Each structure stands twice: as structure tokens, then as C-alpha cells.
Simulated scan of single mutants.
Amino acid sequence: MGRVIGFELNSQEPEKAEEFYSNVFGWEIAEAQWDYWPVTTGDSVKPGINGGIGKGPNDYPHGIRIQIEVDSIDEAVAKAKDNGAMVVREKMEFAAFYLAYLVDPVGLGIGLIQNK
């Protein structure tokens, strides 16, 4: 079962979003790397779902995407396409995981993550 493990808040003014969510909700926001600010929304006593704030790319300039962990990103992408999803970013490789972005049949953006 794929489970939601994170989120992305995309904005063309990520610094303004970072300030808002930090001030209003007390989220801990780390220094940016590649126009992406990692976000912690909880602690060991009351955990939350962590994510990030990023400068939205051309294919998703504004909006929120959940990130869903899958066992096999290739199988999940294929199954999603068979069920009407559109791939907006093919599988990308990072040090600890693979990531792909899709839009589901009703237009909602999602990210798929497979840990290495």
C-alpha cells in the first residue's frame, strides 16, 4: 500500500511562503538547497508529515503535491499511466531515493518516491 510520506508547497515566492508557514504554524524550515526548503511539522512527541517548500517549476508553478512512497517506482508509474495518469517528470535519481511526478486523471499533482 502506498502511503503519504511528505508534501511539497510550490510557489513562485517560496521565501514568502517559508515565512508564512514558519510564523503561523511554527514549522521548522531548514536552509534552502536548489530552491527547496525542507520542512519539519512535528517532533518525537507529536509527529507530523514533513515536506518542503519549493520554487515551483514550469510544470507546477503553484500548488501542493503529496508524495507517496512506493516499493517500485517503475511499476507504480506504469500502473498510474494505465489508470489515466500523465507523467510530468520521469523518474529522477537522488542519493537516497527515486522520484517521479504525475498528474492524476482529475488533474491533481502527486509525487512518487522509492527509497533505495
Rank of each mutant, 00 (worst) to 15 (best):
residue 58 N to V: 03
residue 34 W to A: 10
residue 68 I to F: 03
residue 78 A to V: 05
residue 93 E to I: 11
residue 59 D to V: 14
residue 65 R to W: 01
residue 29 I to W: 05
residue 84 G to Q: 07
residue 65 R to Y: 00
residue 65 R to I: 00
residue 43 D to H: 01
residue 78 A to S: 14
residue 87 V to S: 00
residue 33 Q to C: 06
residue 25 F to Q: 15
residue 91 K to W: 04
residue 67 Q to H: 12
residue 82 D to Y: 04
residue 33 Q to G: 09
residue 29 I to C: 08
residue 63 G to T: 00
residue 57 P to S: 07
residue 40 T to D: 07
residue 47 P to Y: 07
residue 56 G to K: 12
residue 70 V to N: 03
residue 49 I to N: 03
residue 39 V to P: 08
residue 90 E to R: 00
residue 93 E to D: 13
residue 65 R to D: 00
residue 82 D to G: 08
residue 27 W to C: 15
residue 92 M to C: 06
residue 39 V to E: 07
residue 76 A to Y: 06
residue 48 G to Q: 04
residue 89 R to K: 12
residue 77 V to Y: 06
residue 87 V to D: 01
residue 79 K to M: 02
residue 94 F to A: 11
residue 94 F to R: 10
residue 81 K to V: 15
residue 37 W to A: 10
residue 36 Y to S: 04
residue 91 K to E: 12
residue 62 H to P: 02
residue 52 G to I: 07
residue 54 G to V: 09
residue 70 V to W: 03
residue 50 N to Q: 08
residue 55 K to S: 08
residue 31 E to D: 13
residue 69 E to W: 02
residue 90 E to H: 00
residue 36 Y to F: 14
residue 92 M to V: 12
residue 86 M to G: 01
residue 80 A to S: 07
residue 67 Q to A: 10
residue 72 S to W: 11
residue 34 W to K: 07
residue 91 K to G: 10
residue 46 K to N: 13
residue 60 Y to K: 12
residue 85 A to W: 01
residue 60 Y to Q: 13
residue 79 K to H: 04
residue 49 I to V: 03
residue 59 D to Q: 10
residue 65 R to T: 02
residue 48 G to K: 03
residue 46 K to L: 08
residue 32 A to T: 13
residue 94 F to D: 11
residue 87 V to F: 01
residue 84 G to A: 10
residue 37 W to S: 09
residue 75 E to G: 05
residue 83 N to G: 10
residue 59 D to I: 13
residue 93 E to M: 08
residue 71 D to K: 12
residue 60 Y to L: 14
residue 76 A to T: 14
residue 82 D to W: 04
residue 61 P to A: 12
residue 36 Y to D: 02
residue 94 F to S: 09
residue 34 W to R: 06
residue 47 P to N: 11
residue 65 R to G: 01
residue 89 R to S: 14
residue 59 D to F: 12
residue 31 E to Q: 14
residue 44 S to P: 02
residue 44 S to A: 11
residue 61 P to M: 09
residue 49 I to L: 11
residue 25 F to L: 15
residue 54 G to R: 15
residue 40 T to I: 08
